[in-house]
Write a protein that binds this DNA or RNA. Structure first.
Lengths: 241, 241
DNA sequence: GGGGAGAGATGCCGC
DNA sequence: GCGGCATTTCTCCCC
């Protein structure tokens, strides 16, 4: 355990990626307050001093600290305290370690960033280029633009030259999406003193959301934009297993 | 590498918590599509077959799969493919491993659940017991209840017996919170054909949200409820470092 | 399994 | 820094 304290402190110092398992308790105080009774967990401390505590099941960390956390290690009679604090965020995490399972610390070389396709930005980009997929005659003149009216996905005119606001959702439209569109439409309508239409575009919509949408005179268009990740290496046959 | 394939397959079979580092590429296809060029990362496969891929910086996994993923390992000439698929969710992740840094696999014993205090539920519980913190004379008759009107945090009457809906937020009230309250108020108002008040309760509110709130005749009450995590072991001196 | 809503949400971009 | 908003959001609860 003495050895462990030494190892952990120098690993943190060197900015390595640190992974270890331990029987421990966890206490958190910050935006909320939490306690996790004794059990075996996986603890990760990264080079930016972000911290993750993972239980053996579940994809989300049970506790965590953001990058910039300071790490202090204190040896007790029968345990080691790892005191993690982020004073700027006023968040504190304390691990009381009773047994260490394994420990690894190493430099990981990785400067690459993930390339992602199929997000909402891509969807509105595609609809901007292919507006007839929303409605015949719809002509957008702005896209993802911070207008004085707010952050409108697509803003344009329909075939009758009526101002039309389009809100895109990647998945199912819910009540919140309808109120969001309503907020945009009302803001623009109040400003231009003319009729303004609202269209929600998404693969599907929940029954409640559709009812509210109709009540407000908005419309829904079901659209499933194609995924597209352009890069030299063909990916077409990678997911055939 | 041959050895690694064997180790990984049997570790997955035994439901262990598996952690290893590898120089690898990552490809994802599912709700979106993603590619991560070659670099050194940390990979975690848990007993429920949830999968996490972590880069050396940042608290969020760069790629992941939910519990119930099936794991297949294929040996190539110069690399190992780990093919992760979740057919029910139609999500696929592929790791191409070129070098393994370290590998650990072990059973972690942990059945404990986290105890959390200071969430919105606790806040509405506290306000239900101490309604004068919202407004003199406010008397709630339901709390966090799934009424026919929706999920109202607090529902009651004010000192003039006017129906009053209270929406609690743990942090700053934003535009979405105001439209949410508006949706509740309108639904109840339409049903009872009587005036209905709306009150937002939170530590603070953004200027835009406050403007919209006032426009609709709702009110805001700044309240900071105390954190409280009741348990035998006193925590009062644990965060003094 | 879907809908609805909170989360110690996180992360991104804008002002 | 806050605000506004998407997220491969995730998680929980309830129908």
């Amino acid at each position: 355990m003495k050895d462990f304290q030494q190892k952990l402190e120098s690993a943190v110092q060197s900015g390595h990626t640190i992974v270890f398992s331990a029987r421990c308790t966890v206490d958190y105080k910050g935006r909320a307050e939490a306690h996790l009774p004794e059990g075996e967990r996986l603890i990760i401390i990264k080079g930016d001093r972000s911290v993750l505590v993972h239980q053996p099941l579940g994809s989300s960390p049970v506790n965590y600290m953001k990058a910039g956390t300071s790490v202090k290690v204190v040896k007790n009679a029968d345990s080691i305290l790892v005191i993690l604090s982020h004073d700027a965020l006023r968040e504190y995490l304390e691990l009381q370690l009773f047994d260490i399972g394994f420990f690894d610390s190493r430099k990981l070389n990785d400067g690459r960033k993930i390339e992602l396709a199929g997000d909402e930005r891509g969807m509105s980009d595609w609809l901007f280029e292919n507006p007839d997929n929303i409605e015949q005659g719809f002509r957008p003149f702005s896209r993802e633009e911070q207008t004085k009216y707010g952050f409108l996905d697509l803003f344009g005119t329909d075939k009758d030259s009526t101002l039309t606001i389009v809100e895109c959702k990647r998945y199912s439209v819910d009540l919140a999406a309808v109120t969001q569109l309503r907020r945009y439409v009302e803001r623009v309508k109040a400003d231009v003193q003319k009729p303004v239409r609202g269209i929600l575009v998404a693969p599907k919509i929940s029954p409640n959301a559709e009812r509210m949408l109709r009540d407000w005179g908005f419309s829904f268009k079901s659209v499933q934009p194609p995924l597209r990740l352009d890069r030299s290496k063909s990916q077409s046959d990678l997911f055939q297993y």
